[in-house]
Simulated assay, not measured.
Amino acid sequence: MKSLRASFAAAVKRRRMELGVSQEELAVRASLDRTGISRLERVAPNITLDTADSVSRALCSSVPGLLGESVSKEQETAASKDVFAARVREERVSRNLTQEEVGDRARVDRNYVSDVERGKKNARLDTVDAFGRGLGVRPLSLLKSDRMNG
């Protein structure tokens, strides 16, 4: 299975090419530098959800939308970090898991799980993958609000 980071990188490049936007123009729109976009498209950096949001919005989309998921208008403007925080907590509670159990499964510290759930951590794409594995869900489902996961 392709990592969320690799899927996002491929989707960014595909969408950028569809729109006829250069790496330099995308960088300006996303408030990044051109080399950052080049590295992102080559799957080099493990970017944060805030950066993924900036790039997605610069491409007139959202992170889930860019990855081919149908999203509502609300989802298009929702901060991925906030959606991720709420979804991790919802999934953990629905499975009657403690933060420590999720941390063990995702291979992160329990305190990190707590910080994510409270929106205090700006997780990276690889971390979203790890939480997906730890909770037994598709990582991308953790970036869509529950109402849209139907």
Rank of each mutant, 00 (worst) to 15 (best):
V108H: 10
L125E: 03
E41V: 12
N111D: 09
R29G: 06
P139D: 07
V113R: 02
R15K: 14
Q99W: 09
L97R: 02
L135K: 02
A6W: 00
R95P: 09
D53C: 13
K144A: 01
T77A: 15
F84E: 03
F131D: 01
G134D: 06
K2G: 01
N122C: 01
R110S: 13
E117D: 07
A85H: 00
L26D: 13
G134I: 06
A86T: 12
E69K: 07
R124V: 05
A10E: 09
S141K: 01
V83P: 08
L67A: 01
D146Q: 15
F84M: 06
E41L: 07
R133K: 04
A86S: 15
R5A: 06
V116A: 05
G68M: 07
L40V: 10
A30W: 02
R39W: 03
R57I: 06
S54L: 15
V113E: 04
S62M: 14
K81M: 05
A27M: 10
A78C: 12
P139Q: 01
S70V: 10
L49S: 04
V43W: 03
D53W: 13
R39K: 12
A44S: 03
S72I: 08
R14H: 15
V21Q: 11
A78G: 03
R95K: 15
A130L: 01
T48H: 01
L40F: 13
R95W: 04
K81A: 13
T48M: 08
C60D: 15
S114A: 13
K81V: 08
C60Q: 15
D53Q: 12
L97K: 05
V116L: 13
Q23S: 11
E101K: 08
P64K: 04
N111R: 09
R39F: 04
K73G: 11
L32F: 07
R15Q: 14
V83Y: 04
V137L: 01
C60H: 14
A9M: 06
N149G: 05
D146Y: 07
A79P: 08
G20V: 08
L66G: 07
R133G: 06
N122M: 10
D33L: 08
S94I: 00
L125P: 08
A6N: 10
L59T: 09
G65R: 04
R107F: 10
L135N: 03
R39V: 00
A10D: 08
